[in-house]
Design a protein around this nucleic acid. Sequence first.
DNA 1: TATGAATGAGCCTTCATTCAT
DNA 2: AATGAATGAAGGCTCATTCAT
Lengths: 217, 217, 217, 217
Amino acid sequence: MPTAAPRYVSLDTKERLLEAAAQVFASRGFRRATVREICQLAGANLAAVNYHFRDKAGLYQAVLEDTHRRALEKYPLESPADASSAERLHRFIEHLMFKLFDEDLTDCRFRIMAWEMIEPTPALDALVAKIIRPLSQRLQAIVRELLGPAAAEDRVRLCQLSIIGQCLYHRQGQAVISRLFPEQHYTPADLRRLAVHITQFSLLALKGLAQEGEATS
Amino acid sequence: MPTAAPRYVSLDTKERLLEAAAQVFASRGFRRATVREICQLAGANLAAVNYHFRDKAGLYQAVLEDTHRRALEKYPLESPADASSAERLHRFIEHLMFKLFDEDLTDCRFRIMAWEMIEPTPALDALVAKIIRPLSQRLQAIVRELLGPAAAEDRVRLCQLSIIGQCLYHRQGQAVISRLFPEQHYTPADLRRLAVHITQFSLLALKGLAQEGEATS
Amino acid sequence: MPTAAPRYVSLDTKERLLEAAAQVFASRGFRRATVREICQLAGANLAAVNYHFRDKAGLYQAVLEDTHRRALEKYPLESPADASSAERLHRFIEHLMFKLFDEDLTDCRFRIMAWEMIEPTPALDALVAKIIRPLSQRLQAIVRELLGPAAAEDRVRLCQLSIIGQCLYHRQGQAVISRLFPEQHYTPADLRRLAVHITQFSLLALKGLAQEGEATS
Amino acid sequence: MPTAAPRYVSLDTKERLLEAAAQVFASRGFRRATVREICQLAGANLAAVNYHFRDKAGLYQAVLEDTHRRALEKYPLESPADASSAERLHRFIEHLMFKLFDEDLTDCRFRIMAWEMIEPTPALDALVAKIIRPLSQRLQAIVRELLGPAAAEDRVRLCQLSIIGQCLYHRQGQAVISRLFPEQHYTPADLRRLAVHITQFSLLALKGLAQEGEATS
DNA sequence: TATGAATGAGCCTTCATTCAT
DNA sequence: AATGAATGAAGGCTCATTCAT
């Protein structure tokens, strides 16, 4: 009778690989990440990636799935429908900002997504379907509430893109921003302030557009 | 009767190389671009890059300089100080949007810059100094006018970033946007509409912030 | 019945590489030696050098260390302090001559050093520290004994260089020597004769200098 | 009637090339010298070498011939048979030492020869015939005079090699010598002192051997 | 006569992957 | 189940040389 207890021996390496890969993929993107660096960081053999995940691409896929699963466990789909739409917009933006600058990497989906935007891989379709579209729909609902039912579909979409754009630029444009404005930092306190600004900026714009819409109709 | 006009025959290879490089660098970034692909596209020998530009990095530098020079010829520095600040904001945004989506590649600086944001090269500092900072200062002046003299430095900066972010996202997030919103296109007409939206969105936000500022003081 | 003895099969490539590299480095020097030739001679893949030694430079380093280790095994540090200084000088010279012409390549350090003299690499400092300086000090002690305690530092040094020079020239000047004097060969017997000559030549000089020194003082 | 006067226009480039090549070949040897560096130093076009000398090898050949010709003009074959053999040995050694360390490069044959010893080129045979053998014969004559007529052919040859070896080592072993003995320099004064040492060392040895030879016979 | 331009061969290195235990 | 060893493809670069004026 073999040992009945499950053996977690080999999970170790696999898990370490996943963790190391998440880190490397998040900071370098898929293409610039090297299997070597990942294995080294994980203290694993160079061939371990191919053994456990068939492929560099397989590892990437696995990282995405793993991080998604973990994120769902950690942040169950919250839907505090009771809060005001303005409040919900603020929370959405703050959450996104913190994710984008989360050095902890327990959930690196957002940073990896930033890479996928620049150099998409075959994994992008799945990412969009599983992560981005749901987020987009939540944002869309908030924006629609704020614009009023009369707002055109186009208008809602463009506003949504305006909001997301403001957030993402701070992550993707960091190299430029830090050169233009060395005084701009990204401590948690800064991120909170930033979220407040973007929320305020967007709310004012949305309210203005809502009024214009009414006036027009 | 011999041709009196100078013959630019031998300039060809160098120019073809520059053009091909602009294209490849714009679509792949510096690191992923390969000298081989550039030479192949230009119909030139692999060693031609070394001969004419010393380096892959030298070629990159040359592309940036060449494209900058060409851009200055094509779009001389306009300064219609007579227009209203709102009008000037609109023109700034529209100009930026058209640049970001200029498939013509006579001026690929903006697309290359999008790459530099993600994986900066030593050329970034020069790019910031020569191209980005001047643009930033023009935008800053406009924003300050709209926010009023009482606005804090910080506020001006964040608003500027909010505006730029809205514009850039359409370029950098295209892979995601096209999946989320297949109906979103980027024809010249679309770009014009987009510029109008971003201008409107930002103006409303800026005006709102200006009023709040006054109320506070 | 499976073999109980450990199987060194997989050590082969690395060792073959070391051996081939020793041969090529000894005959071409570091710069002119090509990884290709080494790999071909070793029957190994071109990337094997990178795998096992990281670098061409790493392989070079490894060759030097390996050959040094092997040499120490083969010729343990002899210190027959009982012999006369003349006798010790003779042994020193003979040993050096044999090393310089050891075609066996189990110890190619001396031939590689001949290259390092011409085009030094970063490895030279270590070579001097580990191999040359100890030898030099042994020779210096012998020379000092023969010159007497009154001899100036300078004198000892120059005599040492005169002795080494006589030995090395036979190795480094071989291309010229074999053309000038086709009758000059380097069989073991010749080497022994050569060592006798150099010893005799140097002893006479040293004794003469010692007497002069006395006369002067 | 074309211009009768000879045109020295193009000689300039050719001469500059020869001079630059001498310098580069002397300091790097034939193989490590690059056409690029030579042309750059000469301020000439990259193709100039091939145009004027057909080949890198052709340029090398030309340098050797040119330098030889110049040397003959500058130092006509002196044969001061009146001086004592000891005196002539001293002059021979001092002359060689100065040549080996002549940074001026009007006559770089000796430094190039040092390279030919290490990595011979097809030019070596000619070098030996035209330069080295004559020198060798002069030295041989001096040595024979000092050893006396009874000395065996072998003995004369080995003594000759001992003398040359002492001289050459200072040039070829410089990388090692400067590490072992930082106090050893090669100013003209040092070279004179060095020549005195080597002469003294060798004379004592030769005299000793001459006496032994007499005693034996 | 002389040269800017172009070329092909070769070098070292890195990378993801596969093989053979 | 896991890994040390090995591999082929590709990348950037340098070099001596040739071509076309």
